[in-house]
Design a protein around this nucleic acid. Sequence first.
DNA 1: CGGTAGACTTGTAAGG
DNA 2: CGTATACAAGTCTACC
Length: 274
Amino acid sequence: MPELPEVETIRRNLESHIVDKQITAVDIFLPRLVKWPSADEFRARVLKKKINRLERKGKYLLLRLQGDITLIIHLRMTGQLYIAEAGHVTDRFERIRLHLDSEEVLVYSDARTLGTWYVMPDHELGRVHGLESLGPEPLSEPFTVSYLAAIFRSRTGKIKSLLLNQELIGGLGNIYADESLALAGIYPERPANSLNSDELEALHQAINTVISQALQNAGTTFRDYRNGYRQEGHNQHHLRVYGRKGQACPICGSTIVRIETAGRGTHYCPQCQH
DNA sequence: CGGTAGACTTGTAAGG
DNA sequence: CGTATACAAGTCTACC
């Protein structure tokens, strides 16, 4: 699913529609998406609560609710979260619906049903696996070249795999990992500790550029992604390598190749990336 | 600790 | 046109 730019776009879209609104009813059509507590207990805990803030950490969305509790949503591969007019939703993949004390509802739709929902007291957020162990995000102050150098120095694993590790860098996913390596001119299966200082500099710059452009373009709709208004993003028109197997590299014209790296599809230009 | 394969789940595209 | 296939924006667990 959505990586950092997509989740952030959704957050920005939804914020003004849901902050300061009260949750007046909860429809849970697929209870197993609620990982904690039970679906019934989840409903009881969020009912009648006001939404104070909408935040994002990595690929997680956090609805800060009245009463020092937080509703945590991870969209995984195909989750969509959008605002709709009450009574005007037709979506065969709708899984959960939050009714607000406005004329709008917050709809969660998910074709592959891999998404995860939790509600936790704020002091127990550490129980949401992966949430508190996120590494620094691209474009953030602690995400520096020296940080990259430090985490890669002693690791022999493939650079592509490490870029996907959320504990090292928060928010990158398969599309932007490939795009960042393409922009930096680095072959995805290079051992991480083999990058020299110029390459580390180029990769750091490339990650920030790729994420920044994706944010400006309101995310990449390769297939399922939709923003908070159920609209497509625009960044799919600016991809260099992702999903472009057999097509020409925009830089050199060589044919883009697809391989499998650590179980994930990986796209690169054999001419530009070493 | 590091790294990888498999699992979860179901729709859609590509290809025969 | 149906599907005997392949692949998918992610992460968690088991295992070496």
